[in-house]
Amino acid sequence: MTETHDNPPLEGHPHAWNEAVIEAEAAAAVAPRRLPRALAAAAAVLLVAIVVGIVLHRREATVGMYVWLSMLLFAVGAFGVLIRRNALVLFMCIELMLNAANIALVAFARGTGNVEAHAVVLFVMIVAAAEVAVGLAIIVSIFRRRGSANVDDLTTLKW
């Protein structure tokens, strides 16, 4: 940081872009200070959920509610895959989607009283583990070659 301040780049110099990046990174570095507010929001949501849960504790959960939750989690995961650019976070979002599908399977197993869906969920978990291991190995080898885990940097196949 001090080096850039000692000799400030000229206007229109290629370094001007670097300055913008540094400013953006500084803004991102300041951001964790907002964490307490995020924690407070999370605690408030959880408190509301507990109150609602206690009020409605006599009503029984149906399969449909679990399917709703599974759909919402899947949509959040798909949204994350579309907007994030860090390859590792992309993988986490894919895990989220697989897990959402698992919730629906387990809910249907409970609704129909059939245990076979549990075996299918087990297979999904095994395949997810294999997929993550191979995917992370690919990311590591890409990182070694290119020095970046950002999916926007991988444009070799583009023409």
């Binding site: 991102a28 951001a31 964790p32 995020a38 999370a42 949501v45 959880l46 509301v48 959920a49 507990i50 609602v52 849960g53 206690i54 409605l56 504790h57 006599r58 009503r59 029984e60 959960a61 509610m65 679990y66 939750l69 919402l72 989690l73 959040v76 995961g77 949204f79 994350g80 907007i83 994030r84 860090n86 590792l88 976070v89 986490m92 979002c93 989220l96």
Partner: peptide
């Protein structure tokens, strides 16, 4: 029902926070 609402909200909140989390370690 209580269990479903509380832990469903927790799962959904954690998922949304994960997608918008800047730091990869926090996301994990």
């Amino acid at each position: 029902m209580t269990l479903f609402i509380v832990f469903g909200a927790l799962a959904l909140g954690a998922a949304v926070a994960m997608v918008f989390q800047r730091n990869a370690v926090h996301a994990a």
